[in-house]
Amino acid sequence: MARLSFAARLHGGAAALLLAVGLYWGLLAVPADAFQGEVQRIMYLHVPSVSTAYLAILVTFCASILYLWKRDLRIDAVAHSSAEIGVVFLGITLATGAIWGKPTWGVWWTWDARLTVTAIVFTMYVGYLMVRAFAEEPQAGARYGAVLAVLGLPAIILNHFAVQWWRTLHQPSSLIRPGGPSVAPVILWPLVFNIVAMLVLYSYFLLERVRLERIRHRAAESRLKRGRRG
């Protein structure tokens, strides 16, 4: 029954393998930051999660624009799927950020600009999923969702610059900044590796989630055909 193609299995296996190597590299094979100590290792999880969430939001944004133009439900399936995975990674970002914040800053949470915008973006995409679940007619749900998803790009740009435009407890960006990353190579390499591993996992999730949408679509068509005949 659960007929998995060889390519999909290979894809999932590759994601698992990459994450396992990244886990070993980040947790054991590399020294922790001199100032923060061992808790800095949460970075190898927090930063890849937020990078993946940003990409997921960007994919939803692009697919939504394309949907509004082409009105093709297959494109909308990509937008909807990516948004759902984005919520998962945003949730992980918030959770690991809080767990990292407690031993370093001394608090699980504070309402500075970076954290506030991240919480707003997370709530926005939870809202997106609710709009999609609420809509009874697929085209209407896709349209409402797409209009919401257009806010995704300004939201992540705002979040990126939040730490520069306002005073925050969260430190400024370490990777994408003028003058290059402020991370020593021994810490930077496993970090980049873990980002890549998380993106491979995202692409696996996305393909499987789009596959689910396709099967549901075919089932709906089959039901429609049956209804017409009967």
Partner: peptide, 20 residues
């Protein structure tokens, strides 16, 4: 009533990194 430590965006290993 509450102190929060603020750290920089720099990350570097100790001078004598503790290897495996």
């Amino acid at each position: 009533s509450n102190i929060m430590a603020k750290h920089s965006e720099e990350y570097k290993p100790p001078v004598h990194p503790e290897t495996l």
